[in-house]
Design a protein around this nucleic acid. Structure first.
Lengths: 193, 193
DNA sequence: TCGTGACGTTACAGACCGGTAACACCCTAG
DNA sequence: CTAGGGTGTTACCGGTCTGTAACGTCACGA
């Protein structure tokens, strides 16, 4: 068989990776633990030996995706060391690139919408991770030397979140197609003043 | 009892109203038909006499909420007849007012996220209704005399959608708190040029 | 060699889900 | 008064879900 994923990776990692992918594609409530374990080439018992519950698995998945997003930021710094403005433009390009037609949007935002129970354990994790991302974008804007860095960062953040949900509502030909133009226009106008 | 809702209203209307409310609060996959009918003061059989399936009910709910949103637009025209710019500012105020702390966001967008199956019957309805709203906002911007009306309308649209999901991810103290300032700033800058 | 721990398999519990069948009821229009 | 349509009630079907129990297997290290 040699699934590639089941070669030499431990079940826990396979489950985590598969769950991330399936949660992203089909939604959290749209996929059961049986389907995850089967796709990961293992079984339910092994899943519950590594994760307390499905909620626990959800949280671990969110942390993992946030970690990957963090690596993206590091890549910007590596590509344009010290040039914060270039990194900001790289962020715009990367964001636009995440708006491909088959994208299913932001896992955190989707989870926040799907898990409507206000006391769901994943909600505080979502809030933490999203706030960390916001802080990172604010810092980037500030160090890029734009005025009102917080306002620019928040605007860009809302634009991206909006583009990602719009993509799912009306498709790639909708408002999200103009994301780059909007973002670049905003950065330019904030830089001017 | 006199629930208010079960007084003299036919079961179909009660179900539709209750379902809208419950889908909004708890999500579509988060509420079952039994819970809806019980809250509507009726039973499952009556629901299935008026709606083919749960999917059918979902679609009717989306149409109903879109209809209510349409009435909102008419209210703008009634309040500021002919003054399209005033209507645009009224739209901003109304949008901001929908960003209250306990809001659960846009039903269409939430449904699009929850119903990840690409061939789900509700998806084309969502697309139609969202596109109609977009067209309406574009027309308002154009008639308000701003340059690049489509781009402004799309930007405002993404900002609002983004604010509504951000509200659910990080709460009312997050980026969505700046929505009015962002929107007004955008309108001003588009009017200038 | 042995045993220990990680993993797989099967079966199941208990709950919930969407949807249907059969039947009793009641209000109202004729 | 009567017939009939809209409604309520109960019970059920088949399926899916999360989570657990019991047991078998296999590799690896002492």
């Amino acid at each position: 068989m040699a699934d590639g994923i089941s070669e030499r990776v431990r079940p826990r990692e396979r489950i985590l990776e598969t769950a991330q992918d399936m949660f992203h594609k089909h939604g959290i409530k749209g996929v059961g633990v049986d389907a995850i374990t089967e796709a990961a080439g293992t079984n339910k018992m092994t899943l519950y030996r590594h994760f307390e519950s499905k909620d626990d698995l959800i949280i671990e998945c969110l942390r993992a995706t946030a970690c990957k997003a963090g690596a993206m930021w590091d890549a910007f710094e590596a590509e344009y060391p010290g040039d914060k403005l270039a990194q900001l433009h790289a962020w715009v390009r990367k964001a636009a690139q995440m708006l491909s037609a088959d994208s299913r949007g932001c896992d955190m935002a989707n989870a926040a919408i799907e898990l409507s129970e206000t006391d769901h354990p994943a909600r505080r994790v979502i809030k933490e991770l999203k706030e960390a991302q916001r802080e990172r974008l604010v810092n980037l804007c500030r160090e890029a030397g734009v005025g009102q860095a917080e306002l620019l960062a928040d605007t860009l953040s809302l634009l991206l979140d909006g583009a990602r949900v719009s993509l799912q509502s009306v498709g790639a030909a909708g408002p999200s197609a103009q994301f780059v133009r909007m973002a670049e226009g905003l950065i330019a106008s904030f830089k001017a003043r």
